[in-house]
């Protein structure tokens, strides 16, 4: 009986110490958290056949990704109000111009993400870029690729397989170098 009294006499102190240990661990965990590094992010679709992209275009016309087999296709998910998209746009214009001079140049295609046709058309008229802009009103294409945020840029090889996924802004040099690298090592 006296033993139990002694331990129960210390209950408050022991419980307080236990709680202190737990809270202290929480603090330590927060303190040693490592910052996250974002590189080109992975996707389970890497090395897989690209999902279907069949839709109409802003300004009329049809688009079907599978009919582009035989050439490299660069898909750029875009929204006219997203700041990084606006930032990277000149790079895409340069990239498109360069690739169109090559015999086996990559085709740049924009996939509109949560935007109106009018806004997109107005943007391209003002900033240039004559490549196809695919409509995706329900977001089906974005979901099938797993794209939630824009901009994202995907590179599809001539066989229709997904090779690279960029999340965030891209530069023309990076794209060109990457595609050239992949062309060199089939």
């Amino acid at each position: 009986m006296s033993d139990r009294k002694v331990t129960s006499r210390r209950i408050s102190r022991n419980v307080a110490i236990a709680v202190a240990v737990v809270v202290g661990a929480f603090f330590v965990v927060l303190a040693v958290s490592k910052p996250r590094t974002d590189t080109d992010i992975s996707t389970p679709l890497l090395g897989q056949p690209a999902p279907e992209v069949v839709s109409d275009l802003v300004g009329g016309g049809e688009f079907d990704l599978s009919r582009r087999k035989g050439s490299w296709v660069v898909l750029n998910f875009f929204n006219s109000t997203c700041v990084p998209c606006i930032n990277e746009h000149p790079e895409l214009v340069v990239f498109d111009k360069e690739q169109s001079t090559l015999p086996d140049g990559a085709e740049l295609v924009t996939i509109v993400n949560d935007d109106t046709d009018d806004a997109v058309a107005a943007f391209f008229e003002k900033n240039g870029g004559g490549w196809p802009k695919v409509r995706d009103p329900d977001g089906t294409i974005a979901v099938s690729f797993g794209v939630a945020r824009v901009p994202e840029t995907w590179v599809i090889d001539p066989a229709g397989f997904v090779r690279v996924r960029y999340a965030g802004e891209v530069t023309s040099n990076e794209l060109t170098a990457r595609i050239n690298g992949m062309k060199a090592t089939p």
Binding site: R9, R10, I11, S12, R13, V15, A16, I17, V19, A20, V23
Partner: peptide, 10 residues
């Protein structure tokens, strides 16, 4: 809080 409880509680 924990300090006071540990010190005085019992």
């Amino acid at each position: 809080s924990l300090g006071l409880i540990a010190w005085r509680g019992d």
